[in-house]
């Protein structure tokens, strides 16, 4: 079966991609690109890194622009999946959803409407086990945004020591960042043909969060 992976460039979508690749042909990635000013400020530069990740993976990318509201997001998702079906002949979609029933419901409904198989290989997984798996499977992942998590994590690579630290504070910080406590960027993983090297970055400090914006990066 040919599948499309919903791809944000973070740890969860990359782990879902790795699992999907073990059984199916991953024909394309689908990335939703926010266009609001706030999204530009906090996400846009790193969202653009999915193009570089797509090149590193040698898997084509479909990028759809969307607004911040739910309707716009679903419309973009549907439009992207229609393209994935027509351009790449995909029969299934894979996401890195973990716990959000709200997100899963909407995703399942869109897949059903388009007659696509829906796979969520991380569904209900224990968050710490996901972090451990990405470390064990040699992912190189860094924190690109922290909110409610100590700012010293920003830019830091997720290794076993970090996992242990997150495990210690898991009663008030979701270790998978599901509550928006952090966002991650994958610089390398087993399917990457080349890894990403960050050449230039800057930190944007907010009142309650901090974001590492990658200005320039290359494949090496």
């Amino acid at each position: 079966m040919r599948v499309c992976v919903l791809y944000s460039g973070g740890k969860d979508s990359n782990l879902a991609l790795l699992k999907a690749n073990e059984e199916f042909e991953v024909s394309c990635l689908l990335s939703l690109k926010p266009k609001s000013e706030e999204s530009v400020l906090f996400h846009y530069p790193n969202v653009d890194l999915v193009y570089l990740q797509s090149r590193a993976l040698e898997i084509p990318l479909i990028a759809e622009r969307c607004g911040d509201d739910e309707f716009s997001g679903l419309k973009a998702l549907k439009s992207g999946l229609i393209r994935a079906k027509s351009e790449y002949g995909v029969e299934g979609v894979v996401s890195g959803a973990i716990k959000s029933v709200y997100q899963a419901t909407r995703f399942q409904r869109v897949c059903d409407e388009l007659n696509l198989w829906c796979f969520n290989p991380l569904w209900l997984r224990d968050e710490v086990s996901i972090l451990k798996e990405i470390v064990e499977r040699d992912f190189e992942v860094i924190f690109t945004r922290v909110a409610g998590l100590d700012r010293r994590f920003l830019g830091r690579r997720i290794d076993l020591k970090v996992v242990e630290e997150l495990e210690r504070i898991k009663s008030y910080v979701n270790p998978a960042g599901e509550g928006g406590e952090f966002e991650t960027l994958v610089l390398d993983m087993p399917l990457f043909k080349k890894k990403i090297r960050i050449l230039e970055s800057r930190v944007v400090e907010g009142k309650f969060d901090a974001t590492l914006i990658v200005e320039r990066a290359e494949l090496v």
Partner: peptide, 15 residues
């Protein structure tokens, strides 16, 4: 039918 679905529907029960 597919092993990838087992991650979603069997693994949580196993846990």
């Amino acid at each position: 039918k597919y092993k990838l679905s087992e991650e979603e529907f069997v693994k949580p029960i196993v846990e």
